[in-house]
Amino acid sequence: MLGEGIVKGLGETARNFFGSFVGKERLTTVQFPEERLIQPEATRVFPFLIYDTDDMEKGLRCVACKICEVECPPKCITIEKSTEKKPDYAGKPQFFPAKFDIDVSVCMSCQICVEVCPFEAIKMDTAFELSTDDRFGGLLWQKDRLAKPNAYYHTIHPTEAAAVDEELAEKKAKAEAKPAAPAANTGAAAVR
């Protein structure tokens, strides 16, 4: 009969419509911003710089190696290396970025900078409401705005941050053990 298919289809629509009053599976909308979904741990929006301890200037992990600047696909990172050095987490003197800018309007949230960073210094933030009425200054983020403490990293990516801390502690232990290592070597040579 002509129109039978349409009636069947409308039956399906009715089932979904009335079903949306009783079951959550048929009503999937969320009333943002009053209701908010919990972001998954892997969420990535925009990079930030990590610093240890309480002092942003002293604790910044970045050593201005410029790998992320080179690898960044849309080239949104600008780094200027410092002239003097400061000690890093393991006590080794390193350069630090005198200037570290990221252009928020250019960044495409791809996470390549995080992947290539050998110092675990840059990570992805989950904050996403970044709109501003200042088109130029408000979208070009400087070092002081990008830097966030390690504790903040622990709140947004707990599993990942714990793994990173472990790895860094291991590296630090290795670096501290190193001055002793050559002595052990010479000792072995002497025995031979």
């Binding site: 002509l2 039978e4 298919g5 349409i6 069947k8 289809g9 399906e12 629509t13």
Partner: peptide
């Protein structure tokens, strides 16, 4: 199945 029921026999679609 639901999607097919909604559309498959729809005379307008056909």
């Amino acid at each position: 199945n639901e999607f097919e029921k909604l559309l498959m026999e729809n005379e307008i679609l056909i």
